Amino acid sequence: MLMMKVLNQLGLKEKDINEELYAEKVLPYSKSQTVMVIPKYRKIEKDEYGNSSFDLDAYVILADNSTGKILYKYYEENAWTSDAVVLSSIIIDTGLYNLNNETRAFGIRVSYTGSSRPNPFSQTDLSLFIVEKKSLKRVLKNYTLSDAHGEWDMNCAGEFESMEAVIDMDANKTNGFKNLSIKETTVYTKNIPVKEDCIEKKSTKRTTKKLKYNGIAYK
């Protein structure tokens, strides 16, 4: 099993990691290699109701499918926290992040969900990684691709805001990598109780942002 071969090289056991959040995916453009995201427990606590909160270190690994050998590694202490805002999923994104003719990035999407009904919350962040100088390098850190939050009386009255972002590769380059063109759509919703009815009012705002590579990361 590929995961066990990699854990052995890292000196980790299955009990050391959050297996529910563990992710792996074969690279579609390099099918002899698999991306693995290994969330290692740094701290874990349980409250009186049995709910868990925890901090996780992140191992991002590129491994050889046939041998299980770690080819490239990225490590970050205290990368993620799950508490009242729950870390709900980690997904490997192998979209067409072609930064130049020679360099294609892969992404990791990390999603969070709030546990409060009166104040709903959800968010998904994207990080991009490339292979550089025999290791994995993160070139985009936790960019928010979607965000939804609001406050309501759990009957009708309330206000909500949701944002969705789409990333395109720009034709222009900075420091050898294409600029990222990010199109964001934000929807504002207001619910108003009127007699026996609940009236919904919506408005939409669209913006475009540019992120440029400064030689270390996209900013």
Rank of each mutant, 00 (worst) to 15 (best):
I44Y: 13
I44K: 15
I44N: 13
E45T: 15
N51E: 15
S53Q: 14
S53D: 09
Y59M: 03
V60Y: 03
I61P: 02
I61R: 01
I61C: 03
D64L: 02
N65Y: 00
N65D: 09
S66G: 10
G68Y: 01
I70M: 05
I70A: 04
I70E: 04
I70L: 02
I70N: 04
Y72P: 05
Y72D: 04
K73D: 12
K73Q: 14
Y74M: 08
Y75S: 03
E76D: 08
E77S: 11
W80P: 07
W80Q: 06
W80V: 07
S82L: 15
V86E: 14
L87Q: 06
S88N: 08
S89K: 01
I91S: 10
I92A: 14
T94I: 09
T94C: 06
Y97A: 12
Y97H: 09
N98K: 12
L99T: 02
N101G: 02
E102S: 04
R104Y: 02
F106C: 09
F106R: 00
I108E: 01
I108L: 08
R109A: 11
V110E: 03
V110T: 15
S111D: 02
S111T: 07
Y112T: 08
G114Y: 08
G114N: 07
S115K: 13
S116I: 11
R117M: 05
P118S: 12
P120Y: 08
P120H: 05
P120N: 07
P120T: 09
F121Y: 14
T124G: 09
D125S: 15
L126A: 06
S127E: 13
F129K: 10
I130T: 04
V131M: 00
E132Q: 11
K134M: 10
K134P: 00
L136K: 04
R138C: 14
K141G: 03
N142I: 03
N142G: 08
S146L: 04
S146K: 02
D147M: 12
A148N: 09
W152H: 11
W152A: 10
W152R: 06
D153V: 11
D153Y: 14
D153Q: 10
M154F: 06
N155T: 11
C156V: 03
C156E: 04
E159T: 13
F160V: 01
E161Y: 07
E161W: 04
E161D: 03
M163F: 02
M163E: 12
E164V: 14
A165M: 06
V166M: 12
I167C: 00
D168P: 07
M169I: 13
M169Y: 11
D170G: 10
D170S: 13
D170R: 00
A171S: 13
K173T: 11
K173I: 03
F177R: 09
F177L: 15
F177A: 10
K178V: 01
N179V: 01
L180A: 07
L180W: 03
I182F: 10
I182S: 13
K183N: 15
E184K: 15
E184H: 10
T185G: 11
T185H: 11
T185W: 09
